[in-house]
Amino acid sequence: MKFEIMRDWLLEGLNDVMKAISQKVTNPILTGVKIEVNEKGLTMTGSDSDITICTFIPVEQDGEQIIRVVESGSIILQAKVFSEIVRKLPTNDVTIEVENGMQTQIQSGKSEFHLIGSNSDDYPVLPNVKDEYRFSLPADLMKTIIRETVFAVSQQETRPILTGVHWETDEEKLVCVATDSHRLARREIQPENMPESPFSVVIPGKSLQELNKILPDNGDVVEIVIADQQILFKSRNVLFYSRLLEGNYPDTSRLIPSEYKTSVQVNGRSLLQAIDRASLLAREERNNIVRFSADSGKVIEISSNSPEVGKVEELIEAIDVTGEDLKISFSAKYMMDALKAIDGQDIAIHFTGAMRPFILKSADSDSILQLILPVRTF
């Protein structure tokens, strides 16, 4: 195997692949990156058995030659070492050659490295993803969906199914839900090309966080293929495979109240900033609790009290308050996460009592919903 490649292209592809590589794997071969080159271009693969990422670099793009292939072939190189070498090479012209079996030579300018590779036949085969369910979404929308839901997955492995985000089709909609049993984040969208058959899958939260780092911030189309125990996201020259979580996701629809005793409409950014300030004192307490009071006037009081540190009270002008007077306490962190997901728009908050879950929505749309369980303090 021998080829010449532009270093910046090699590094960009390698950076994506490295997101799937972990040093904590049971199979030592997975600490390596698989490199394959042929007349079409270079493919690099990294995996930790839960996530597999493949990047493809074409021989040429837009008339610019990126790779010159002298001899096709494949090799596995230690990912961490190879990545560090490529990052620090002195010039943009890189030659990689494998000779005498696994001896790999990397040359750039006056630098020359010799690495011992492994046989690429030992690398696990890629998951076989059939086209059972296939649809597509713009990359920027995918990133938004991830941002609006993945923060609410459980960090505890006691209920593994809750460490993922539940994606299911409901008539013409795709509904994405995450919950850790103390809060819930839901996002609904209507893709143009939904699969005809309904599906229900749970994607690990960690997989979505890594995918979010790779997706471009534009409207490039991401093709999504769901198969038995695997999901594949295809974007530009990147293939991102993730295993799916096994088990039944709880029915979260029954948690969402349909009747409200108190409704508040307020500017989301003002409320976020007020809770952020109140949490400066609340952080000293174990649960980071902030109190929220609303009455028949259009003024909301946000307060926090720490016996050792002091207290804070702040008044915010609401756009509208309807229903019963209310005093409620909640986690400042959960509330701030929810407000960030709705992203500074005017929001509607609907309460069903001081000890019942309450929901937050954009004042203009029902597509994003956040639910939080209050804390007993009053």
Rank of each mutant, 00 (worst) to 15 (best):
R286K: 13
Q105G: 05
I35P: 01
D62L: 15
G297P: 09
D295R: 02
Y241D: 11
R147Y: 09
Q155R: 04
E168N: 12
K173S: 14
L280V: 06
E64F: 12
N100Y: 07
R186S: 05
V153R: 01
D140N: 14
I372C: 00
S365C: 09
L137F: 07
E148A: 11
A79R: 01
G247L: 05
I57G: 03
L184Y: 00
V59F: 09
R356C: 12
S181K: 06
A20H: 02
S306K: 06
F378I: 14
F151I: 00
L255C: 02
T322P: 01
N38V: 10
P307V: 02
P204S: 09
N128F: 14
N100E: 12
L162H: 00
Q107F: 06
G268Q: 00
L271N: 04
M355H: 09
N288S: 12
I96W: 03
E132R: 07
K234N: 14
V69G: 04
Q61R: 09
K130F: 10
A338E: 03
K213H: 04
F113S: 04
R277Q: 11
G344Y: 03
V81L: 14
S258N: 05
S111W: 12
E285W: 00
V309G: 14
T43G: 00
I347W: 04
M336S: 06
P257Q: 04
S111T: 01
L255W: 01
I189H: 04
D228E: 15
S74A: 07
V150P: 01
G323K: 01
L10W: 01
V17A: 05
G164M: 04
T45W: 02
A20R: 07
L115K: 03
L211T: 06
C54K: 09
S181R: 03
R7A: 05
F199Y: 11
K333Q: 13
T55C: 10
F113L: 01
E313N: 14
Q229Y: 08
S72R: 13
S49A: 15
T91L: 10
G73S: 00
V17D: 10
V153Q: 03
F330W: 08
E188N: 09
G46W: 00
A348E: 10
V266L: 10
N237F: 15
A282T: 02
I316A: 11
L280S: 10
R376T: 12
S329F: 08
R186P: 04
S270N: 13
M336P: 06
E301Y: 13
F240T: 03
E313H: 11
W167F: 12
E317N: 13
D366G: 11
E12L: 15
D50W: 11
K361S: 11
A274I: 05
G73D: 02
I226T: 06
S253Q: 07
D50G: 13
L30N: 03
E71Q: 08
C176K: 02
L215F: 03
K110F: 12
L126A: 07
V94R: 02
H182V: 05
E4L: 14
F378D: 15
L373D: 06
D295C: 01
I224C: 10
T149H: 01
L280A: 09
E36R: 04
H350Y: 13
T179V: 00
F82W: 10
I349E: 02
I231G: 06
P28R: 06
I289C: 11
I368N: 10
S47C: 01
V25D: 07
M355C: 14
G205R: 00
K19V: 05
I300A: 12
T144V: 08
F82M: 10
